[in-house]
Design a protein around this nucleic acid. Structure first.
Lengths: 223, 223
DNA sequence: GTCTATAGTGGGATAGAC
DNA sequence: GTCTATCCCACTATAGAC
């Protein structure tokens, strides 16, 4: 992070991000120049680069904002029900609602974020704050549910659900159906399935598979 | 495709792709300029753009070549064994072997390919030839195996395995371990698990889950 | 440490002549 | 199909104001 802590710089930084997001929405990512962002924010180009090393990095603001909003938007559902399927679906739908506005340029954004080595990658250490927040959210989803979970699985599950979320996001990015109907449908169908699988994992017959899967999940760490 | 059919243009096109891939390997994607590609191929910049609408689109050549090579590289394993786990692992390892050379710039490449609307997206209609080839390959993997497969699942399975492959590729792209050890390990651990799950799907207890999962897979089509 | 202004480089992409 | 010339913009450099 290039984060200086003074109130003054915080404000300038926020202005720039805000201007950028507004222009991205209006003109798309490619159609928005750094000159335009700087002008819209009322700062010089050099100053914009003082806060963000590249145009790509401007979307970090979007990234951060999204992670914070997600938790807030999920709170109501998590307070309302203890059914795991509903909690999972609700958490994903909350994300879809807050991200909806940015669907048009999210593709470009996630393409940038998907690059290894890019600080915006969800796997990079620069994103670890946002990732940790999401993992904590998924832990809450589990903690408040009435479903009993196989012990082997419990520790790994927030991470697996986060990966599941990334899959949904990937689908969402490519979804051009009106009103994002297809993504909503995918959430509606997959969330109960996920909940069912978590429940099934307690079956003795499935012990070995679950163990194998848990080992696999463990070996994914530290990428 | 922008494909004119004359022998002359075919050749020019091939020259450009060849030059591009060589330079990508040597200098990486960002380090390779269109000017350099054109010069290396012995054509003008404008001419390079006549064949490829953007620098991104240049990697289509890589994409096509990879898909074709994959089938060829998989043939030996598929001829050698009928064990599903080994066939799956072998097919994935074959891909890793041929793609190894390009690992350094593959990240950039797949980031581009992940953009919706981009003709390089594995889900785009422009890539349907390469995708169909991969699906056919996965169908062969299943067809030549000794594992009996739940009927409901059989038709969807090539597609699901292709998605599984995309997941592996995504991991590979972010894998910076020496010799790509971690991806190899992931394949070694996950392939038997996949085979086991396919086998388990025949259990009567799992009927409903499998049906639900198959429905889900069916609803994914047509993205 | 925060910011402006300005001038410059390099490279992706395009227009239009041939 | 191919070229040359040109445009545009991300990004850098610099010098200085507060």
């Amino acid at each position: 992070m290039t984060a200086p802590a003074t109130a003054r710089s915080e404000q300038t930084r926020a202005q720039i991000v805000e201007a950028a997001l507004r222009l991205f929405r209006e003109r798309g990512y490619a159609g928005t120049t750094m000159r335009a962002v700087a002008e819209e924010a009322g700062v010089s180009v050099g100053n914009a680069y003082y806060y963000f090393r590249s145009k790509d990095e401007l979307v970090q603001g979007f990234y951060d904002q999204l992670a914070a909003d997600h938790r807030a938007a999920s709170a109501p559902v998590l307070a309302r029900t203890t059914d795991l399927g509903e909690r999972v679906a609700g958490t994903l739908n909350a994300w879809l609602s807050i991200a909806e506005h940015y669907h048009a340029f999210a593709g470009r954004f996630f393409a940038v974020a998907a690059q290894p080595g890019n600080p915006l990658s969800p796997f990079s250490s620069a994103s670890h704050a946002a990732r940790d927040a999401e993992l904590a959210l998924w832990d809450d989803v589990l903690a408040g549910s009435s479903t009993r979970i196989a012990a082997q699985l419990r520790a790994r599950l927030p991470e697996l659900l986060w990966l599941y979320q990334l899959g949904i996001v990937l689908f969402w990015v490519h979804d051009s159906s009106p009103g994002l109907r297809r993504t909503r449908e995918l959430v509606g169908r997959s969330a109960p399935l996920v909940a069912r699988l978590v429940r099934l994992a307690r079956l003795p017959t499935l012990g070995p598979v679950v163990r194998q899967a848990a080992d696999l999940a463990a070996s994914l760490r530290g990428s």
